[in-house]
């Protein structure tokens, strides 16, 4: 049985969740532990924490946050943003993260993927890839770095194949064209990568409705779907998302045994 995962993504700076998370009834809307516990109770399958400061002085704060979350929330979670070395990865994993996500640093020094995978196993290395559809008339998607600011000229599908060969156990694939637009995933991009690699692919970027989540799986072929705003702003619960995905004929974890 293949079971799709629904993954809320939380942006963190200086140990606080930012970007207007707006749950009703939270004592402290910026508290990562309280938010993580809330998503766990709602049935989130995993969590992703993205450190958007990624400055060296913010690093220890992030390690402390990871430890606090791991003390109280017992679902898998990934930490990304600013992981540049095996030491960075080790600190996050020792603090209680299950996986680390690498992006720009891995593109600039691909051995980083192999180094982390060799020490901790492929299953804990997520390669995050930000792809943008080529606009010069050529087909395909180009890898962008630094949160979508820096073009590389490299094909996103080729980089995903290489990242898996280097030891990545999962691909977190974000469409920079769709990110923030609420127009749905770029399902052609997702499909191109899921057809090319043997590891699970998480689709990201552009979710505006619950049907978008289902489409990412049925059309894009994603193994997991990641979203931020539709959950954070209280528009939809995880349970509502799973009901729509399930209605599309896809297996999801429910609270019923």
């Amino acid at each position: 049985m293949r079971v799709a995962r629904v993954i809320p993504c939380l942006d963190v700076t200086n140990g606080r969740v930012v970007k207007g998370v707006n749950f009703v009834g939270l004592r402290d809307a910026g508290d990562p532990v309280e938010l993580a516990a809330r998503y766990d109770a709602e049935g989130a399958d995993e969590l992703v924490f993205l450190d958007i400061t990624a400055s060296s002085d913010g690093r220890e704060t992030m390690v402390e946050m990871v430890a606090h979350v791991a003390d109280q929330v017992f679902i898998p979670f990934t930490v990304g943003g600013g992981i540049r070395s095996v030491d960075d990865a080790r600190r996050m994993l020792r603090a209680g993260a299950d996986k680390v996500s690498v992006n720009t640093a891995a593109f600039e020094r691909p051995e980083l993927i192999t180094e982390i995978a060799t020490e901790f196993g492929n299953q804990c290395v997520v390669c995050a890839i930000d792809g943008r559809r080529r606009t010069n008339g050529e087909p395909g998607w180009e890898v962008f770095l630094h949160g979508g600011r820096t073009p590389t000229g490299t094909d996103a599908v080729e980089w995903s194949i290489r990242a898996v060969a280097l030891g990545a156990g999962e691909i977190l694939l974000t469409s920079m064209d769709r990110d923030g637009t609420r127009q749905g995933f770029d399902n052609e991009l997702t499909r191109a990568v899921t057809d090319a690699v043997t590891v699970p692919v998480i689709a990201s970027g552009g979710v505006g409705s619950l049907q978008d989540l289902a489409d990412g799986i049925t059309i894009g072929g994603a193994d997991a779907v990641l979203a931020a705003s539709i959950f954070h702003f209280g528009e939809h619960t995880i349970a509502e998302a799973k009901a729509v995905i399930s209605a599309a004929g896809i297996n999801v974890r429910t609270n019923e045994n």
Partner: peptide
């Protein structure tokens, strides 16, 4: 015939 690893919840 299936993706490896199995990285998901299952019943």
């Amino acid at each position: 015939g299936v993706k490896r690893p199995q990285m998901q919840w299952n019943q």
